[in-house]
Design a protein around this nucleic acid. Sequence first.
DNA 1: GCTGCGATTGACT
DNA 2: GTCAATCGCAGCT
Length: 200
Amino acid sequence: MAAIDLLRGHAADVAPLLLGAILTSDVGGRRVRLRITEVEAYGGAGEDPGSHAFRRQTPRNAAMFGPPGRAYVYFTYGMHWCLNVVTRPEGAAGAVLLRAGEVVEGLDAARSRRPSAGSDRDLARGPARLTTVLGVTGDLDGSSLFWSRGRLRLALVDPIDGSRMGISARTGVGGAGAGTPWRFYLTEEPTVSPYRRAAR
DNA sequence: GCTGCGATTGACT
DNA sequence: GTCAATCGCAGCT
């Protein structure tokens, strides 16, 4: 089965398949390669109160309503970019937020983009840190992750063993969507970000 | 047009 | 543990 066909399912079903996947960035002429260690699933309009797609399609979240296998990149808190992989159950929006990863190639480039990181395990330990290390910004919103000449490319791997996967509620999601256990991570991985409840 | 706040981070007590 | 930074979107007047 082609990789992109795996992404047509519901975000909560696709998310575990992205654990261990390799994401390659060639932004700015520098290559950084990352092994994904933590993800969160977000659903479609009317179904997931924690999702940007919950209310309706807008210019900002349009990529979530587009074809699967593309990037959804959004700007938040006035300073941070976050990267999602678009998935799509037929006729609905969905995306998987990439929350953390382990840099496996391009350590020098990664360190220069995040000089404040205390150690290599902190380079991509958090969704906005991950985009910083990869050089990802809004101009990649909507771009394909499966185009051989794209600046961002995703390579799936064999599904990881269930005993190495942890599941929890989503970080930073409050209100009606708070209880949904749609955060997936590799256990015993130091690059997984610390869980935080939604503020207040 | 105005206000509130967010799928966060880093600095600080 | 607390809090400010900083801006676009969403919702309301």
